[in-house]
Design a protein around this nucleic acid. Structure first.
Length: 423
RNA sequence: GGUGAGGUGGCUGAGUGGUCGAAAGCACAUCUUUGCUAAAGAUGCGUAGCCUUAACAGCUACCGAGGGUUCGAAUCCCUCCCUCACCGCCA
């Protein structure tokens, strides 16, 4: 969430910067400013009355000790209490509305974030490798995976529903090999600490990273326990340090985590996505960093490079694009997407989204560090996929398919997979 | 799930209705002193909000969370959460 002081002092600047995202946020900012004034007026009045009450109550204590009659003065306090209760209603409702508004306003795009209206205006930053050429018509992963006994889409529908899949045999093994490869790469080569977190979280965690309150319809929820299935490991991992004040020496904190991710994808049913590309459940290795404000932009570059290393090591052609202001996520200040080439699809697939959130998430989860001057400051948080598994699986299978329908396992993965080819 | 004991500042730990935001100790910071590898003394040392300022200060809230009783709650009552121990159950 944004700093209310900043909004209070520069409402027009805030409106202008939010306008780059598209959509109407100006009216929310206006309401926020007026509700903030109302809240502070009521709050000041309440505090003054509370001060009066405290002072008089002490007098009562002293008077009683001296055996004096206190009935008149007690009546006075009672009337003060009535006023406190009344003004308190105003203060509390304004406070709730203000919090609600603050949680519903997206982050300011970073100055370095390119201005644009939609995904069409996302600049390409760089590419790596080139599109592989085949002397046959490359097949789609669903055909390859089904015929090799790796993927069973029908079984996924049978036991759960559409957009769920069963990996089997070499498919299950390949998925597991990829997870191990990714975790090993980031933890031994890139300096991330591996963590293994719960897949169910409290609502506060989702508020902390920004999924709640606005995007509750995209998350699976168990009402009996008020727990949510995580849509990404970003949620439990970033919230690991919620409500903490970290020491400067601890930063940056770098975590790598494998988890399945659960997404309802409400509103995007039947969106023309075939096979593994958009599932309700998919595996992902996520990278999370908690940094100082000064270093977060550098850390974003490193994080993105760490994710790119995955595709380089596997020999997969990809491009990096930068999201423009009209396309970045709700909480993000700056985002790079990494898109891998999938020959069977004839298109690039987003396998990683690397973002710096500035202090937006840290404010929501009250995550701070003690700065050199002894002051408590909000940390910056970052995360990026390192990478999403299902689409990586697609790109890998489609890229390394052979004319006879078999798949060659890239060198770096063979020790994990246990053989050189499938089929 | 059952029974019992607890949850107080960075830590330990006092505090059972009134000047308690909270004793004491530890840790930490600054200073002083003696001196030499240690010690003594002084002062300071929570978080957030409000209101102000050149700065200081002031006010309010916070003793697991929420609600209640009261003129007044860390202290009394209710509900919930968590921790520990034992029992039950279980991968």
């Amino acid at each position: 969430m944004l700093d209310i002081r900043l909004i209070r002092e520069n409402p027009d600047l805030i409106k202008q910067r939010l306008a780059n995202r598209g959509g109407d946020h100006a009216s929310m900012v206006d309401e926020l400013v007026s509700i903030d004034t109302a809240r502070r007026t009521a709050e000041t009045e309440r505090q003054k009355l509370q001060g009066d009450r405290n002072r008089i109550s002490k007098e009562i204590g002293i008077a009683k000790k001296n055996g004096q009659d206190t009935s008149t003065i007690e009546t006075e306090v009672r009337s003060i209490n009535e006023r406190i209760e009344q003004i308190g209603l105003d203060a509390d409702s304004a406070d709730m509305r203000q919090k609600d508004l603050l949680l519903s306003i997206p982050n300011l795009p970073h100055e370095a974030c390119p201005v644009g209206h939609s995904a069409e205006e996302n600049p390409e930053v760089r590419t790596w490798g080139s599109k592989p050429e085949y002397d046959f018509q490359p097949k789609d992963h669903t055909i390859l995976g089904t015929s090799l006994g790796m993927l069973d889409f029908e079984a996924g529908v049978k036991i759960t529903g559409s957009a769920f899949v069963v990996y089997r045999g070499p498919g299950a093994r390949l998925e597991r090999a990829l997870i191990n490869f990714l975790l090993d790469l980031h933890s031994t080569q890139h300096g991330y600490t591996e963590v293994n977190t719960p897949h169910l979280v409290r609502p506060e965690c989702l508020v902390g990273t920004g999924q709640l309150p606005k995007f509750g319809d995209q998350v699976y929820h168990s009402p009996e326990d008020d727990l949510y299935l995580i849509p990404t490991a970003e949620v439990p991992v970033t919230n690991l340090h919620r409500e903490e004040i970290l020491r400067l020496e601890q930063l940056p904190i770098c975590y790598a985590a494998y988890t399945p991710c659960f997404r309802r994808e409400a509103g995007s049913a039947g969106l023309g996505t075939r096979g593994l590309i958009r599932m309700h459940q998919f595996d992902k290795v996520e990278l999370v960093k908690i940094t100082t404000p000064e270093s977060s932009m550098d850390e974003l570059e490193k994080l993105t490079a760490n994710a790119e290393k995955v595709l380089q090591t596997l020999g997969l052609h990809y491009r990096v694009i930068e999201l423009c202001t009209g396309d970045i996520g709700f909480g993000s200040a700056k985002t790079y997407d990494i898109e891998v080439w999938a020959p069977g699809q004839g298109t690039y697939l987003e396998v990683s989204s690397c973002s710096s959130f500035g202090d937006y998430q840290a404010r929501r989860m009250n995550l701070r560090y003690k700065a050199e001057d002894g002051k408590n400051r909000f940390c910056h948080t970052l995360n990026g996929s390192g990478t999403a598994l299902a689409r990586l699986f697609v790109a890998l299978v489609e890229t390394y398919q052979q004319a006879d329908g078999s798949i060659v396992i890239p060198e770096a993965l063979r020790a994990y997979f246990g053989s050189e080819k499938i089929g």
